[in-house]
Amino acid sequence: MKPILDVQKVKKYFPVERGAIFRKVAGQIKAVDNISFSIVPGETLALVGESGCGKSTVGRLILNLLPVTGGTIFFSGIPLEEMDRSQRKIYRSAVQAVFQDPMSSLSPRMRIREIIAEGLVINQSLSRNEIDSKIQQVLDQVGLPQDAIKHYPHEFSGGQRQRIAIARALIVDPKLIILDEAVSALDVSIQAQIVNLLRDLQREFHLSYLFIAHSLGTVRYISDRIGVMYLGSLVEIGPAEEIFTNLHHPYTRALIDAAMPSHPDFVREDVVLAGEVPSALNVPEGCRFNTRCPFAKDVCRQVEPEMFEIGPGHFTACHMLDGAPEAGFFLN
């Protein structure tokens, strides 16, 4: 299937400025460093990784909220920067977003009607009646009462607000929705409601999701493929079950082992990853995981491993894995 979104070697560096009067660039935060992946229609790709590894930045780049430092993002085969006005307009409806904080993602002084309709009002010239009937429709789809439109965001609970945010994204018939920690801030019982809603909507409208999250339980439940990020770069990407059952990269292992068990019988005491994530200002030489990796050898400290295919559609970047292009010796 042809990908709907194709991210090719994308970089985003943030300059760090020092000095009070004469600003000079003192360094660069490599928030996103050479990332490539694609998403096909109807698929959920999850991005996981620890705080600050660049997940949200990837989302913001795709949403065109930030310019890329290098690389290209293709939507339906067209590079973002080469889009003309009409293509841009289509793109703005086709790609929507739902963010983490249900408090901050709805304008506090707008009524729900206005919030949900904003994308329509800006991009399409519809009559009031057409807009109203579309609003009715999406409210039904996300499970909100019809009279919600008259109220303000603060009158709703966190879960309901997230439904409003979803309705707002849904109303413009998107193809791809960036879900940046869309359920992380919600209560456990509400999280399941929203995740189920997202799954149902996906089936009904054949949506693609970029699901950014740090909760691996949710990720396993909802995603078709998973990309694991570490310090701005993808270290492993592949089919979800493959990642969970047949994982390869040492960081992926550590991350999955660190997830909390769902039952006391599943508690393991052994595995602990030492140390902390280095600063994105100062990415280690060679493999960026080598400072914490229990398997690191000299080559890891010198040569940056390249992505290679370790199983069907399953890519990873680690020197110590069988089949790795550079070093290619067995991982014990």
């Binding site: 949403l63 800006i122 945010a165």
Partner: peptide, 22 residues
């Protein structure tokens, strides 16, 4: 910096609209 401004941008709102409406 709040998310609703980012979302308004995603929806294609102009700077003027964001300043006045949001």
């Amino acid at each position: 910096e709040r998310d609703f401004v980012a979302l308004a941008r995603v929806a294609g709102a102009s700077d003027l609209r964001i300043m006045v409406k949001h």
